[in-house]
């Protein structure tokens, strides 16, 4: 059985959304930063359990520091979302709760995963302290560069969406 699920990946610019998708879909990485504009869509089929596949349609949205500016049409038919921030740039997570509230209002029923990316660039203990001090909660700390936790986070969301599909 295969179900198709639309996932939007959003967050501030330069946080590594495109790199996470590229690592997940193509298992590749580039250090060069190329800005994403509009939306770029890719697809990857993952197997959740034997015979159960989920076709993930990944919408890589242009980064913005004001999520209320995201075009509503981009969010049409969204099943799940991944919110990405950059652990090396506090400006990308200082207002994370406000951002998630906006996203929650736009997509009230979509399961979400919160990801701090670029962990390869920081000392883990310092990062823990910083995020704790700022009261930031997250689901995954990833590195698109090394591939750390990238597959896990996408598979986690795929499983959440797959179990939602069964409930329906």
């Amino acid at each position: 059985m295969r179900v198709s699920k639309k996932i939007v990946v959003l967050g501030h610019f330069g946080v590594g959304k495109t790199s996470l998708i590229r690592r997940f879909v193509e298992d590749s990485f580039s250090n060069d930063y190329k800005v994403s504009i509009g939306v770029h869509i890719t697809k990857k089929v993952v197997e959740i359990t034997a015979g159960n596949q989920v076709s993930l349609i990944l919408w890589d949205l242009e980064g913005t520091d004001d999520l209320s500016n995201i075009r509503d049409s981009y969010l049409l038919g969204t099943h799940g979302l991944i919110y990405v921030f950059d652990v090396t740039r506090p400006s990308t997570f200082e207002n994370i709760n406000g951002d998630l509230r906006i996203v929650g209002e736009k997509l009230p029923n979509a399961p979400k995963i919160v990801v701090g990316n670029k962990v390869d660039l920081v000392v883990p203990e310092d990062l823990d302290r910083l995020l704790q001090r700022q009261g930031i909660t997250y689901d995954y700390l990833s590195s698109a560069k090394t591939g750390g936790m990238v597959n896990d986070l996408f598979l986690h969301l795929a499983k959440m969406l797959s179990s939602d599909a069964k409930k329906i």
Binding site: I37, V39, I41, E62, S73
Partner: peptide, 8 residues
């Protein structure tokens, strides 16, 4: 309308 869609 969908603006700026990269078809890749």
């Amino acid at each position: 309308f969908f603006n700026c869609v990269q078809l890749g």
